Amino acid sequence: MKDGLQLGISAKCATILLLPIALAACAGSDGGGSITYTDDRGVANQPFPNNYRVELLAFMKTYLNDPRGVHDAAMAEPMQRVVGGRLRYVSCLRFTPRESDGSYREPRERAVLYVNGRLDRVVENASDVCAGAVYAPFPELENMTR
């Protein structure tokens, strides 16, 4: 009787331990893609972000600790790129912000991603995404106030 009880407990423990693995396999059964709750699978053409300059300036006011005194601001027009396996409009931004001590360090490069025509997020490591981008002066970023 004791051996049968131990065998039953072992089977229950094994089932409990294997359940998360089985559920994970079900979740990844769509060809290895990530789970999404929207119909955007990243392959459809995205709408062009018509208000990208205005949205970017509004975002940069909150992104930078002090939006005053930005130097060498330049931006590339939005272009479609594959980022994270999804087709997105990306605008590349290069600027030198004023540090808290008033000094200036090296320029920063950021990739700004747009989803459904709206600013979605900023990628700080933009060297791959922004390779080959053609920059033009962006004086509105240099003229920001608090």
Rank of each mutant, 00 (worst) to 15 (best):
A73I: 05
G69H: 09
Q80K: 12
Y114W: 01
Y63W: 07
Y135T: 01
V122S: 05
G42Q: 03
E55K: 05
V134A: 14
R108Y: 03
F48D: 14
V115I: 00
C92I: 01
D66G: 06
A126S: 13
R105W: 01
M60L: 13
G132M: 08
A111D: 04
A136T: 06
V70C: 10
V123Q: 07
A25P: 00
R94G: 02
E140K: 08
A131R: 15
A133R: 03
A11V: 10
G102T: 03
Y135G: 03
L17R: 14
T96D: 08
L18C: 14
R86S: 15
A27P: 00
R110E: 05
A76R: 02
M60Y: 12
V82T: 15
V82F: 08
V115W: 00
D101P: 07
L64T: 02
A27T: 04
Y89V: 03
A133N: 04
M75W: 00
L93E: 02
V90G: 05
R94V: 05
E55Y: 07
V83I: 12
A73H: 04
F48M: 12
D120E: 10
M1G: 08
V129F: 08
A25I: 15
C130Y: 06
M79G: 06
I9M: 10
Y114C: 03
V83L: 09
P107A: 12
Y37V: 14
A44Y: 06
N50S: 12
L113A: 03
V112Y: 02
G4S: 13
R98M: 09
R88N: 11
R81T: 01
N65F: 09
F95H: 01
E142V: 00
R41S: 07
E124H: 12
E77P: 00
L17P: 02
R98F: 01
G85A: 03
N45K: 14
R81Q: 08
T145K: 15
R110F: 09
C26M: 14
R98N: 00
A27D: 01
F59G: 02
Y37S: 06
E140M: 14
P139R: 11
V123E: 13
F95Q: 10
N65C: 01
L64Y: 02
S34E: 13
N116W: 00
L23A: 08
M60P: 07
G8E: 01
A27Q: 07
D30N: 15
V82Y: 06
R108M: 12
Q6M: 07
G132V: 07
H71K: 15
D128R: 14
R86T: 09
A44C: 05
Y63H: 10
V90L: 05
G31E: 10
V112W: 00
L119A: 00
D66L: 05
K2Y: 08
E124P: 00
V90Q: 10
V123M: 09
D39W: 12
S127G: 01
T96F: 06
R108I: 06
R105T: 02
D39R: 15
N50K: 15
Y104E: 08
V122C: 09
E77H: 02
M60K: 10
L56H: 06
S100C: 00
T15G: 10
D30C: 11
Y104H: 05
D39K: 15
R86M: 08
P107S: 12
M1A: 14
Q80V: 07
A22N: 09
I9D: 04
E99Y: 00
Y37W: 14
A14Y: 10
A24T: 06
